[in-house]
């Protein structure tokens, strides 16, 4: 499953990393506590969060997440978007809730 397919299915907008959307994704973690996310997000996972600050990029990068979905209509800070572009992190967002996103991802077989 590619990030591009996920973005399309879940109707997500790209804040950063659209050029990298051919990347594969497998598995998912949902959480907003960065210490937990840091240890629970595994390589190639989709990480769903409502955190919007710049540290999201550091965690996604260190944990090697495939992409970050910022759920519930939350909008990443400008500094977060800039950092994500710089670090090659795919940052997606939309009105979808974390639960609905997870259900859709599960149906897609992720």
């Amino acid at each position: 499953m590619t990030v591009s397919e996920i973005a399309k299915k879940l109707n997500l907008a790209y804040y950063a990393g659209e050029n990298l959307s051919g990347k594969n994704a497998k598995g998912c973690y949902i959480g907003d506590l960065l210490s937990l996310a840091m240890s629970r997000v595994m390589a190639d996972n989709v990480w769903i969060t409502i955190q919007t600050n710049i540290n999201v990029v550091a965690v996604a990068s260190l944990a090697e997440a495939s992409c970050v979905i910022v759920a519930d209509g939350c909008v990443p800070d400008d500094t977060t978007i800039e950092k994500a572009k710089e670090q090659g992190i795919i940052l997606l967002g939309g009105e979808i809730s974390a639960f609905d996103a997870a259900v859709a991802l599960s149906e897609m077989g992720i």
Binding site: D32, S35, L36, A37, S39, Q51
Partner: peptide, 16 residues
């Protein structure tokens, strides 16, 4: 609010 301060820093350092 930034998603830290949950008292997991030192325990995580020990764990990993």
């Amino acid at each position: 609010e930034l998603g830290f301060g949950a008292g997991m820093g030192l325990p995580n350092m020990k764990k990993y």
